[in-house]
């Protein structure tokens, strides 16, 4: 029998930032304890790892939601909210953020509510995909480069859908860390995070193509995250520690891309005409400052997936 909220382990209490990643699960100390003692220790470590993984998924989903919230706020403000539905992702992402954020620190709302919020975010994201595809299609030229560049972006609602999905995963992990929707939890998370990374990298690729890759750093989000996604997917298919280690490195690098991207984009804003003084224009016409953290969110989820796989495979 599982309890909804597990007793806090000493290790888990201290974990509040993604800076403190669990060491490789099952890592042992210098002495060789007895079998029973070791099992208990392993159980504790695994429980702690799963606990942390669940929270990390919440954190990742929350970062995604924050990225979507800020990005859609900017972009839909730019679009003058001419369609009332353009408020939906703001509301949905805000709720998603409001539930994922406390859950990251272990303070969960009642589960059904939590789940409903995440489901709503996912549904809003999926609906947004439809709206945005319609917006592209109705412009002269239809599915053309010009409209892919400048009509409503497909990638943004996709991120909201992912945020909702991972939020639901995190809710479920609290109850059962081994399976999700009937699939092995770590692997499912790994596979979907990998897919999310590929999709987000595709979006960055499209928009950086629009920017003609004028800065070599613009190649980073279309190289590192796809590599990380590939390693993550491989690790999901084949439980090999070496693959997991490689995937972990790739995901940490992807997370770094997500953080550094904000800096790069701020630099981009600053070098547009008028710089920060002309913020009312450059925040909207410059590179989107809130977009890169999507990579951070997905990388966090990928790392959590790796931890879960390690814990469950141990």
């Amino acid at each position: 029998m599982t309890t909804l909220v597990r007793p806090r382990t000493p290790e888990a209490v201290g974990v509040s930032t993604f800076g403190e990643w669990p060491a490789v699960a099952g890592g042992d100390g210098g002495h060789r304890p007895g079998l029973r003692e070791r099992r208990v220790a392993e159980e504790t470590v695994r429980d702690a790892a799963e606990e942390r993984a669940g929270r990390t998924v919440h954190l990742g989903a929350g970062v995604l939601a924050l990225s979507v919230l800020a990005d859609s706020a900017l972009e839909h403000y730019r679009g003058s909210f001419h369609n009332k539905a353009m408020v939906a992702p703001l509301v949905s992402a805000t709720l998603s953020l409001a539930t994922n954020a406390p859950a990251t620190f272990g303070a969960r709302a009642p589960l059904p509510l939590l789940d409903a919020v995440q489901a709503a975010a996912a549904a809003t994201g999926v609906a947004g995909l439809g709206f945005h595809a319609f917006n592209i299609g109705k412009r002269p030229g239809g599915l053309s480069w010009l409209n892919l560049f400048y009509a409503a972006p497909v990638g943004a609602p996709f991120a909201l859908a992912l945020s909702g999905f991972f939020g639901r995963c995190a809710v479920r992990l609290a109850g059962d860390s081994r399976t999700l929707f009937g699939w092995p939890a770590g692997r499912l998370l790994a596979a979907t995070a990998a897919g999310g990374l590929i999709g987000t990298a595709a979006e960055a690729g499209l928009l950086h193509f629009r920017g003609a890759y004028h800065n070599p750093a613009m190649a980073l989000p279309v190289t590192i995250p796809p590599v990380a996604a590939g390693l993550l997917a491989a690790a999901a298919l084949k439980p090999a520690p070496a693959l997991r280690r490689a995937a972990r490195v790739g995901l940490v690098a992807t997370a770094a891309v997500g953080v550094a991207g904000v800096g790069f984009h701020l630099f981009g804003v600053s070098r547009n005409m008028g710089g920060f003084r002309n913020l009312s224009q450059n925040l909207l016409n410059g590179p989107p400052v809130p977009a890169p953290p999507s990579f951070l969110g997905l990388a966090l989820i990928g790392l959590a997936a790796l931890s879960l796989m390690e814990a469950n495979d141990a």
Partner: peptide, 20 residues
Amino acid sequence: WSATPLATLSAPRGLSPPCV
């Protein structure tokens, strides 16, 4: 029809900022 090829930047280049 086509977007017009224009000698004004759609992204930064050197010390020139993109079109406002």
